[in-house]
C-alpha cells in the first residue's frame, strides 16, 4: 500500500512537471512578451524591451529557461510577476484562498444537490418528475456559463437588489461578525453560477448510473435474499452508482478552473482564474508558470482522492 501510494505520488509529480512544461513553452511561443504592455501603447522602444527580456533571461532557449525555473522553484522562488508588480508567491497566496472558498463551496453544493437529485430521479426513472429532473439538468447545461452569470448579475443583483453585483466584500464595509455575513452575501451568486452547471452534470451522471444499477443482477439477488429495500437503495445501489460520479469529480477540479475564469471575471472575484487569465493576456511568464503549477497540483490531488473514493465505492476494483 505504501509503495503504491509512493508510486502514485511519483506519477503525479511527473504529471505536474508535464503540465507546467507545456504551458511554460506555449506561452513563450505565443506572440508578445511581458514588457509589451497595453493595447495601443507601444511606447516602450523595442531595444529597451530586448534589454528587459535579457535581464530576466527570456532571450535564452526555452529548455534552459525551464531548467533554471525548476531550480528556482526547488529553492522556493516562484519568480516575479511583471504584470502585478509583486512576487508570484505573494500573488498566489492572495488568490488561492479566495478561489478555494469559491470552488470548495460550489463543488460541495453541486455534489450534494447533484447526487441526491440524480440518485432519486435515477431510482424512479419511470416517473415523469424524474425524467423532468434529468431534462432540466440537460437544459441548464445548454446555457453558456457566462450567460448564466451575466443574467444572475442583471437580475437578482442589479434589478432586484438582493445581492451585491461583484467583488468579494463590501469596500470599507463592516468587520467582525457582520463582515463575515457580508462575505457570505457576496459569495452566493458566484457560487450558484459556478455550481449549477456542475450540479447538472453530476445529476445526469448519477441519474444514468442509478438507473443502470437499479436493474443490475446483484440488486435483484439482494432483494431475493430479503435485504430491506432501504438498505438496498442506499447501501448497495447508491454506492455502486457513485463510481462514474466520483470518477468525474476528481477531474472536475480542472474543469471548474475553466468555469472559474469566466465567473471570476464577471463577478470581479480576485482569484486564481483571473490570475491565469490576466497572466496569459499580459504574457506574464512567471505568473502563468506559478499559477499552472498550483492548478496542476490541485488537479492531481483531486484525481488521487477520486481514485481512492472509487476503490471504496466499488469493491471489485480494489484488486484491479
Amino acid at each position: 500500500m505504501g509503495a503504491s501510494l509512493l508510486g502514485r505520488l511519483a506519477q503525479g509529480a511527473l504529471v505536474v512537471l508535464f503540465v507546467v512544461a507545456t504551458c511554460f513553452a506555449l506561452i513563450r511561443l505565443a506572440p508578445g512578451d511581458p514588457f509589451f504592455r497595453a493595447l495601443d501603447e507601444a511606447s516602450v522602444p523595442a531595444e529597451v524591451r530586448a534589454a528587459q527580456l535579457a535581464r530576466f533571461g527570456y532571450d535564452r532557449p526555452i529548455p534552459e529557461q525551464f531548467a533554471r525555473y525548476l531550480g528556482n522553484v526547488v529553492r522556493g522562488d516562484l519568480g516575479w510577476s511583471h504584470s502585478r508588480g509583486q512576487p508570484v508567491a505573494q500573488a498566489i497566496a492572495t488568490a488561492l484562498p479566495s478561489t478555494l472558498l469559491l470552488v470548495g463551496t460550489a463543488g460541495l453544493l453541486a455534489f450534494v444537490v447533484g447526487v441526491s437529485l440524480g440518485a432519486w430521479s435515477g431510482w424512479h426513472a419511470d416517473r415523469p418528475i424524474a425524467r423532468g429532473i434529468d431534462r432540466g439538468a440537460m437544459l441548464l447545461l445548454s446555457i453558456p456559463d457566462y450567460l448564466l452569470a451575466l443574467l444572475a448579475v442583471m437580475g437578482p443583483a442589479l434589478a432586484w437588489g438582493l445581492f451585491p453585483v461583484g467583488g468579494a466584500r463590501t469596500e470599507f464595509g463592516p468587520t467582525g461578525l457582520l463582515g463575515l455575513v457580508d462575505r457570505l452575501h457576496h459569495l452566493v451568486l458566484p457560487v450558484l453560477a459556478l455550481a449549477l452547471p456542475i450540479a447538472a452534470v453530476v445529476t445526469r451522471l448519477q441519474h444514468a448510473a442509478m438507473r443502470d444499477v437499479r436493474d443490475a443482477a446483484f440488486i435483484r439477488t439482494a432483494r431475493a435474499n430479503g435485504v430491506p429495500e432501504r438498505r438496498i437503495r442506499w447501501r448497495h445501489a447508491l454506492r455502486n452508482a457513485l463510481v462514474p460520479v466520483l470518477s468525474y469529480g476528481g477531474v472536475q477540479v480542472a474543469a471548474a478552473l475553466s468555469g472559474v475564469v469566466v465567473i471570476e471575471r464577471i463577478f470581479a472575484w480576485p482569484g486564481m482564474g483571473r490570475l491565469l487569465y490576466d497572466g496569459v493576456l499580459s504574457r506574464d511568464y512567471p505568473l502563468i508558470a506559478g499559477g499552472v503549477l498550483v492548478a496542476a497540483i490541485g488537479t492531481v490531488l483531486g484525481t488521487m482522492v477520486a481514485d481512492l473514493a472509487i476503490r471504496w465505492a466499488d469493491p471489485r476494483q480494489r484488486n484491479a
Partner: peptide, 26 residues
C-alpha cells in the same frame, strides 16, 4: 494503462479554457 491514464490526467490538469486561450493567442 498507467502511462495512458497519467497522460490523460496531465492534459486534464491544464484548464481547458487556458489551453484554448494559449493556442488561439499563438
Amino acid at each position: 494503462d498507467a502511462l495512458l491514464m497519467r497522460a490523460t490526467d496531465a492534459l486534464l490538469a491544464i484548464p481547458r479554457l487556458l489551453l484554448l486561450l494559449l493556442v488561439v493567442a499563438g
